[in-house]
């Protein structure tokens, strides 16, 4: 099957360019998810009951509907209805980010709840305001604890990003499909795309594990032993 090898070789630079697009989408979505997820988590733990309910509703909504439906809803539906002109690329980042914010908020919430309650109380006793206690005492510990969950989330978003192909975002999958239909080398090209995703998953989770080591405070665990 040398033909298939040639096809993969020819397409490789093009596919690798696509993995850059994939990575930008994934990083963008994760950052958006982080920025929205942290306040959501803090509010769900420390906020008033009404707010907690609302956030619960938000999480239920974004976790209960498939990504593909959200992509169509935002790209074809809301963008036209509200008359805003967003590229498929931007919509992909926004939708993946919103969904991820729901998942990430639950990761952070779990981490916050796993801290001993004394940490927050001690901070309040030292005269910190609620906000200060959350920002300077609770979150620095909780975020460190959430890195394992976060690396899971990375591999989920990375794989979900392949769905954005449905909108025509030029990521790995879209490019593989494009080359495959032109050269009739479907199987080799999809396998190549699969391998690229495998490598990205592996590299990302490895990197996050290194980050976890790096930010660990030596000799300190929040549980106190």
């Amino acid at each position: 099957m040398p033909e298939s090898v040639i096809a993969i070789g020819d397409a490789l630079p093009y596919l690798l360019e696509g993995s850059l697009v994939t990575l930008i989408v994934v990083v963008g979505a994760m950052v958006l998810g982080l920025v929205l997820g942290v306040p959501l988590a803090a509010a769900q733990v420390y906020g008033p009951p009404v707010l907690r309910r609302l956030i619960g509703l938000y999480v239920w909504f974004f976790r209960g509907i498939p990504l593909l439906v959200f992509l169509f809803l935002f790209y074809f539906g809301l963008c036209t209805a509200l008359d805003v002109n967003l590229s498929a690329f931007t919509v992909a980042i926004i939708v993946l980010g919103l969904i991820s914010s729901a998942y990430q908020s639950q990761i952070f919430r779990g981490a916050i709840l796993s801290l001993p309650e004394g940490q927050f109380k001690a901070a309040r006793a030292l005269g910190m305001s609620d906000l200060k206690a959350i920002c300077f005492i609770v979150l620095p510990q909780a975020l460190r604890l959430s890195i394992p969950g976060w690396s899971n989330e990375y591999s989920i978003i990375l794989k979900d990003s392949a769905v954005t192909y449905a909108l025509g975002v030029a990521e790995i999958m879209a490019r593989a499909h494009f080359v495959a239909t032109r050269t009739y080398q479907q199987l080799p090209l999809y396998l190549a795309a699969g391998v690229i995703f495998l490598i990205l998953t592996y590299a990302g989770t490895k990197g996050l594990r290194l980050l976890e080591e790096k930010v660990r405070i030596p000799g300190y665990s929040p549980q106190g032993f």
């Binding site: 591999s155 990375l158 794989k159 979900d160 990003s161 392949a162 769905v163 192909y165 999958m173 593989a176 499909h177 495959a180 479907q186 199987l187 999809y190 396998l191 795309a193 699969g194 995703f197 495998l198 998953t201 592996y202």
Partner: peptide, 16 residues
Amino acid sequence: RGVPLVVQLFIWYFGL
């Protein structure tokens, strides 16, 4: 677990 489901589906349907 490492390959996106979309890629897997494409392999089964368009690749095989």
